[in-house]
Design a protein around this nucleic acid. Structure first.
Length: 444
RNA sequence: GGUUCCUUAGCCAAGUGGUAAGGCAAUUGACUGCAACUCAGUGAGCACCGGUUCAAAUCCGGUAGGAACCUCCA
């Protein structure tokens, strides 16, 4: 498999640290609100990558965190006169519900900041001990200049950054690029430390959780949205280099951002679309199909038209499967588990080119064409047909499309027969009645 | 101001040197009792300019337009 490594800006052949196993960490959300449709993209992309690994025999440890300590959460809690845990729990549940309804496979672990405070504090302490960090008025900052190639992930030059850096009110830092590891505060949830009572900065948690959950300072894949590349991932990397001389991950993957009707979603534009609303309106299959119809690194624009296209295309896939299934059951052919490996291999090969889902979709369409033709042969080769169908089922499983094959009842079988008979007898009025019944049951 | 990236038919979207995948829409034909489904066919020379090469959508340079990031938004 080839993956585009954001760190080297090039396609690289994937090689796992442990044979046939992948350790993957994807930065999760700060849980202060419901997930919007943009949050769904990394969920879908990295779940698909996980499934792509698994179909090839890898086991995958897929971890994604919840940031449950943050100013936004604290503010929300103050607004609603609730405590932070109530707020963060509410939205963690909301995220989990969206993951479930998007058919995202259960994650291996979903660590939270509040559950890792001793480790986070001792990590910061170690950075202080080794002088990669310094304390000012109870705040702790990371000393960016101590990392020689700081900026190597995001291809930022420190000097350029300093020129472009916004002027901060906070002049306590040695260098404007230094980032906060700890903030002393008298508001909201706080922890005691030798340097002050407060809460951790954002960039430390991911490194600490990776180290802890994977029991290693070096994993295979670190993913997230393109917007996290700098500063978040850069800063994670810097901390890992500081304490472990480790690059943290072999492959850094970043998904592109999502637009709605050509515009970035934002509260000020008032065009934020909540994932739960989108899912209940269009269903998770349509969303997955839509999100995967473009390459994960490219920006993706959602519009009425792209939604409708996704619906139509998806319907084509499911129709082919359904019709094959119905015909097979009417012919009373018992299913076998064989898969047309040649067809599946073509799909996997396409997907293995840096999760090239558009080309994967092409192979799906090719397979559909083959299936439809096989189904309409004069003498159907059922064994071959079932193998093709099973290959197609495997493909949509990789992209996470859920599909329940219809199970024909005696009544359904009878309706089919009556429909055939009526047509033979040229009693079209009666035939149309049966056709309507079958159509309404979604069997045509 | 800095960094990274993008520009392919009406629309979506692959394709990193050898002569433009796939899909949606449109349209023609076949199938059908009619229809749906399905199958077969029809359409671009790749933003623009210049260069390298036997050969470029693909490499290099420039122009125009667009996007993301530059301290906590996936």
């Amino acid at each position: 498999m080839k993956l585009y490594n954001s760190k080297t800006n090039s396609l690289e052949e994937f090689k796992s640290i442990t044979p046939m196993h992948v350790d993957m960490y994807v930065c999760g959300p700060t849980v202060y609100n419901h997930p919007h449709i943009g949050n769904a993209r990394p969920m879908i992309v990295f779940d698909t990558l996980r499934r792509l690994f698994e179909v090839q025999g890898y086991t995958v440890s897929y971890v994604s965190n919840y940031t449950d300590v943050d100013d936004k959460i604290i503010n929300k809690a103050l607004n609603e006169e609730l405590d932070e845990i109530t707020i963060s729990t509410r939205y963690i549940d909301a995220y989990q519900a969206v993951r479930d309804s998007l058919n995202v496979k259960p994650l291996t672990a979903t660590p939270k900041v509040t559950e890792n405070m001793p480790e986070i504090i001792s990590f910061i302490k170690e950075l202080l001990d080794k002088e990669y960090a310094y304390v000012v008025d109870g705040d702790v900052y990371f000393r960016v200049t101590k990392i020689e190639d700081y900026g190597c992930l995001s291809k930022q030059n420190i000097d350029d950054l300093q020129v472009g850096a916004r002027i901060e009110e906070n002049s306590k830092k040695e260098n404007p690029l230094d980032f906060a590891l700890w903030k002393t505060t008298d508001m909201g949830i706080r922890w005691d430390t030798p340097w002050g009572k407060g809460r951790p900065g954002w960039h430390t948690e991911c490194v600490v959780m990776i180290n802890k959950v994977f029991d290693s300072d070096h994993i295979d894949i670190h993913g997230g949205g393109m917007d996290l590349k700098f500063p978040h991932h850069e800063n994670e990397l810097a901390q890992s280099q500081a304490l472990h001389h480790s690059q943290l991950a072999n492959y850094w993957l970043h998904n592109g951002m999502l637009n709605f009707d050509g515009e970035k979603m934002s509260k000020s534009l008032g065009n934020v679309v909540w994932a739960k609303d989108f899912i209940s309106e269009y269903g998770s299959n349509v969303i997955r199909w839509l999100m995967l119809s473009a390459h994960y690194r490219a920006p993706l624009n959602i519009s009425e038209q792209t939604i409708n296209t996704a619906k139509t295309e998806l319907e084509r896939v499911l129709t082919a499967l359904r019709q094959a299934e119905v015909a097979q059951q009417r012919a009373k052919i018992i299913d076998h588990k064989e898969i047309d490996e040649k067809l599946l291999d073509r799909f996997v090969a396409a997907m293995n080119e840096d999760i090239n889902t558009p080309n994967g979709f092409m192979e799906i369409f090719e397979t559909i064409k083959i299936l439809n033709k096989a189904l309409r042969e004069k003498d159907v080769d059922w064994q071959a047909l079932i193998s093709i169908k099973n290959a197609l089922l495997k493909m949509i499983e990789v992209i996470g499309i859920s599909y329940q094959p219809p199970i024909l009842t005696i009544e359904d079988l009878n309706n089919f027969e009556q429909w055939d008979n009526a047509r033979k007898a040229k009693n079209f009025e009666l035939a149309d009645i049966y056709r309507k019944t079958l159509s309404e049951k979604g069997l045509l």
